[in-house]
């Protein structure tokens, strides 16, 4: 069961100003995926878009890689890539397009039963307020052992997390990614981020059959 919702309009419209290439995932859209709203939004902004790709199961990295190859030139010519999928899908695309700023178009609320469907090492904790747009498409909640939102702690050594020398420090990956994209100011300028644990409850925790419309 997957539940995603469109990010707030203001943030989305700002992303559309950056000449985006659009990727939509229709893999597990059955339960709640804001398909109509996405189409509406794309239509309104048609002139700003460099291209659209539609895939099933973005999270299958190998498949996505092959499929996106034919859009290589279009992606190259675009300013950013906006992905409409769950948080895992966005992270897969961010990994496959290391040279592009990859932005999430949706917030992921609920993925239960879907983790482990495809083999890969990216994860989404369904925080309901996707932070990938601040972090170069690397999830600070699942890639950092402390789920820190405002930057690296003092514990990383040689790029590894204080928790385990085998584990990459998620925030060092984020820093390097942003630096490569010349976007390191994004973390500096973003407001202080504080996770809202009530968001999930508000939207669907009390009654999963009833999803509030924005």
């Amino acid at each position: 069961m997957l539940i995603t919702k469109l990010k707030n309009k203001e943030e989305l419209l700002a992303s559309f100003e950056k000449k985006p290439f659009i990727i939509k995932c229709f893999g597990c859209k059955e339960v709640y995926f804001p398909e109509d709203k996405i189409e509406e939004l794309l239509k309104e902004n048609e002139s700003k878009i460099t291209g659209v790709a539609r895939l099933d199961y973005l999270c299958r990295e190998e498949f996505s890689k092959l499929y996106l190859a034919k859009y290589g030139q279009q992606i190259k010519n675009s300013g950013v890539v906006i992905v409409f999928s769950c948080g895992v899908g966005v992270q897969v695309i961010a990994k496959l397009c290391p040279e592009k700023e990859v932005l999430a178009g949706c917030d992921t609320y609920y993925l239960d039963g879907f983790q482990g469907l495809s083999v890969q090492d990216l994860n989404c904790e369904q925080c309901g307020e996707c932070y990938l747009n601040y972090t170069g498409g690397i999830c600070p909640i699942t890639a950092c052992s402390k789920g820190l939102l405002n930057g690296q702690c003092g514990g990383a050594k040689n790029g590894k997390c204080e928790v385990n020398v085998e584990m990459d420090c998620g925030w060092e990956l984020i820093y390097k990614k942003l630096k490569g994209l010349k976007l390191e100011n994004v973390t500096k300028q973003s407001k202080v981020l504080i996770r809202n644990y009530k968001r999930i409850l508000d939207e669907l925790g009390y009654n999963k059959d009833h999803i509030k419309e924005e």
């Binding site: 402390k146 789920g147 405002n150 204080e162 202080v192 504080i194």
Partner: peptide, 22 residues
Amino acid sequence: GDHPVLGDHPQAKPVFDLDSIS
């Protein structure tokens, strides 16, 4: 703060509801 796994109660729940900045 350090992660609990570095200490003598590695089984403990890591909280980190806030971080140094928040």
